[in-house]
Every structure is written in structure tokens, then in C-alpha cells.
Design a protein around this nucleic acid. Structure first.
Lengths: 139, 139
DNA sequence: GTAACTGCAAAATATTTGCATCCTT
DNA sequence: AAGGATGCAAATATTTTGCAGTTAC
């Protein structure tokens, strides 16, 4: 059962505005992670570019979405699930997959990041694993 | 024993120019990964910003350096070691660490990325693991 | 009604491209 | 000498900031 954008905004103590609802709905209905530009295209001249920047920033601060590291200088965002926020800080523990063929990035929600032993003196706070290759639909 | 920039350029069939030598030397003497801006600062008005862009691009194409994925929209580069290029494609198998305190990113050359089992239908080509936290010197 | 959100303009920053000149081989 | 590399100018793209008008509660 899908969450409703309004409920998410309410539980984050954000006022329910047209742009936030729209952008959140886009995330809720997207199977892939989204870059600023993706959202801009999906909004089709409906909202200002700046509003999208600010909305994404607000969602980040509230822990509604998280960023996915990438090598290509494009910040992509995906919805956090409930387990994402543990003891106050962001902590999403799943692998991200980036398809070389279709270019899409998705969260492999059921694929846990394996543990890794760091050299002495290093303390991990957050771990990201990004696998690139060919996805299910492109293979 | 450290490699020499000249040798690296020669073995990549690149002509030995002042800017390439300088930028490569910066990498050879840097314990951390470097962003375009870091290099610009270390060059101190010596080379044009565009030259640095193009040099980094060239080094990437030749497999001399690799990028490290990040969430902050900054592309950081680090030298590839010999094992980086396996069977024609880039394949660096070590963990990258990004320190929240000093902001530096380093290659943990001796920390291998653990294997991960992907869902059926997904085929990995390259795997990146970025751990953020507090590094040895900042702890 | 008030505080917060949005759109527009513009500034600041980052990256790419074209071209004439210079350097490496 | 020839081809490639560099520097400069400028085009393009991206992100941030300020402010006035609008909207949610």
C-alpha cells in the first residue's frame, strides 16, 4: 500500500503546497532515482527551477529523500523508507544500482550492503555501495 | 618506490607537456583524491582552468586516474594503480573513504570491496563502495 | 493575519567549445 | 614540419541568492 504525499508532508511538519505535493507524487510513482533535471521535465514548465531546488533541499533536510552518490556529477534523489532514519541520522543500508544501458539508477531495497572491515583508526558513519552494470529490463 | 610522471605519460602514449607533468606530479604526491578545484589551487594560476579540465579528461580516457562517486556534486579523481585496468576496463576494487571532519577522500587500497549478491537479472560490471565517517587523523 | 513558500531576476559558479598560437616529437 | 596541446574568449549549464508577491494554516 502506497503512502500519500499529504501524509508524508504532514508527518514532516511541512505545509502542504502544490509543488511539494507534485514533486513528492513524482517520487512516489517513480521506480527510479531522480535528478533535479528529471523532475523539471516531469513538471513540464509547471514549477520554477528554483522551487524544485529548494523543495529537494527541504525534503533532504526532513529526511524524506536521500542522495545517491555517482561519478557523473549528477545528484540523484530517492525516497527514504522508514528504516532510513535510525537514531536521528540517515542510514539507508541498501545497494544502489546504476544501469549502463538505460542510465537509470534504482534502489535495490532488498539487497543489504555487506559489512566491511576498515583499517584501524577509521570509523564508518555511513556506507554507500553503487553497483553499475546492466539491469533486469536491459539485459 | 614511486612512479615517475614521465614514465606514466610515456606508457600511455601521451606527449610530455608541462601541464600534464605538473598535474600528474600533484596526484603522485597527494595522499587524497583531488577535485578539479583542488588541482586549480595547487597550480596557482599556472595553468588555465580549461587545460586542467582537458588534462583530467585525457587522464581518464587513458585510465591513469579514476573518479570517485560522491553525493556532493564534486567529481574527485585519484590515481589508478596497476590492477585498476583489468581486461580492458576499469576495475578498481578498493573502498573509498570520505572524512566528514576534514572533507578529504582517500583510497583504502588495502580494503577490498566485499562481494554482494544482486537480485536475479542484474549483472554487475563495476562496484563502488564509499564509506564516510571519521578518518585516522581526525578521530 | 502571519509566517512560510513561490516566481522572477540576477548573481555566482561550473563546464564546454572554438580558434589562434605554441610546443612536443 | 606537423599534429597535438594550450590559452583566451565566449557560450552554455548549473546552482544560489534576494526580494516582492502569494499561499497555507
Amino acid at each position: 500500500m502506497k503512502k500519500l504525499s499529504g501524509d508524508i508532508l504532514k508527518s514532516s511538519a511541512l505545509s502542504i503546497t502544490s509543488s511539494r505535493t507534485k514533486i513528492l507524487d513524482i517520487f512516489l510513482s517513480s521506480p527510479t532515482a531522480l535528478a533535479h533535471q528529471d523532475i523539471e521535465l516531469k513538471c513540464k514548465e509547471k514549477y520554477d527551477r528554483v522551487t524544485i531546488y529548494r523543495t529537494l533541499q527541504t525534503f533532504m533536510e526532513k529526511g524524506i529523500i536521500h542522495t545517491i552518490p555517482s561519478s557523473d556529477n549528477i545528484t540523484r534523489y530517492a525516497l527514504c523508507n522508514d528504516e532510513c532514519i535510525v537514531a536521528g541520522h540517515h542510514h539507508d543500508n541498501h545497494v544502489h544500482f546504476s544501469c549502463d544501458a538505460c542510465g537509470k539508477t534504482i534502489c535495490l531495497d532488498d539487497t543489504q550492503i555487506p559489512t566491511v572491515k576498515l583499517p584501524i583508526g577509521y570509523h564508518a558513519h555511513e556506507i554507500n555501495m553503487i553497483v553499475s552494470g546492466v539491469c533486469k529490463t536491459c539485459k
